[in-house]
């Protein structure tokens, strides 16, 4: 007895997942266009101003990094959260479960498809910021920004999975937005932390997006004494969110298939 080879299966599954995400404009258009739109509203006017007096970093560069991170994490949290909750609501997992598709291939394919959409959002945003905002970065800065934003999206894959299995199909859009938007705000992605109320400044250092923001801001020239703590936090969040996702997945499967 044999089974099908895994790599072609992964390729097909990732392609199908990508099409599923892309063909829901409510998701794909907002994911790909929204970061550029925020950049137009908030970043364009001051793009050429220094971030603060005497800074080498321009506000346009800084806000480009903010929105790149906002965009990729948005894809992960909302893309996974809402689409998984919907698929469960429509019992799509039932038929899949009876096929010889390994669960790991299914999840890996979903992650790959979301990473592809996330990359598209970064590319569109970068082109827009460069063309409309005149944002300049060195070649290595562009690459570092892209790579760090993509890396920082990984813990949010786990968070999205967890939310997808914990939220109901009807409540998923509200729940994911309620969690994601305020934390993006409180992490200083839209307005610098100095402008936020004290209690938010107090909790910000514990938020994953705040730590990720340090890493992307650093990639466009904002200097910090030490970013290794931020990397450590990201690794910790990755482990924590994936464990949470695993727990939520097992809980859901236990209910349905035991």
């Amino acid at each position: 007895m044999r089974t099908a080879p895994v790599l072609p299966m992964l390729g097909r599954q990732a392609y199908a997942e990508f099409l599923k995400l892309l063909r829901v404009p409510a998701f794909s258009v907002t994911s790909i266009v929204l970061p550029s739109m925020f950049f137009a509203f908030i970043g364009l006017g001051n793009a050429k101003e220094p971030l603060f007096k005497g800074s080498d970093v321009l506000f346009g560069q800084y806000f480009l990094a903010s929105m790149a991170l906002y965009g990729v994490a948005n894809v992960m949290v909302l893309g996974f959260g809402i689409s998984l909750a919907n698929e469960r609501g429509q019992k799509q997992d039932l038929l899949m479960k009876s096929t010889p598709l390994p669960a790991a291939v299914y999840f890996f394919a979903k992650a790959l498809s979301a990473l592809a959409i996330a990359l598209m959002s970064i590319v569109v945003l970068s082109l827009f910021a460069a063309a409309a905002g005149g944002v300049h970065l060195g070649a290595s800065q562009w690459l570092t920004l892209g790579a760090r934003a993509m890396l920082c999206s990984i813990p949010f894959i786990g968070l999205g999975f967890a939310l997808g299995y914990l939220a109901g199909p009807n409540s998923a859009p509200a729940v994911t937005n309620l969690i994601y938007l305020p934390t993006a705000f409180a992490s200083g992605l839209f307005f610098p932390l100095q402008l936020l109320p004290q209690f938010l400044r107090d909790i910000a250092p514990y938020l994953p997006l705040y730590r990720a923001a340090h890493l992307v801001w650093n990639s466009v020239g904002v200097s910090y004494d030490d970013i290794s703590a931020d990397w450590l936090y990201m690794a910790g969040y990755t482990v924590a969110f994936f464990l949470l996702a695993l727990w939520a997945y097992r809980r859901d499967q236990g209910k349905k298939f035991n």
Binding site: R2, T3, A4, P5, P8, M9, G11, R12, Q13, A16, L19, K20, R23, V24, E87, Q90, K91, Q92, L94, L95, S98, T99, P100, L101
Partner: peptide
């Protein structure tokens, strides 16, 4: 199966090709 769902945003050929890839 009864009452199982399939992704609505795929074409018939696409989902058949997807399921074909699961089998040897």
């Amino acid at each position: 199966l009864q009452e199982s769902g399939v992704p609505g945003m795929l074409r018939v050929t696409e989902i058949v090709d997807l399921f074909r890839s699961y089998y040897p």
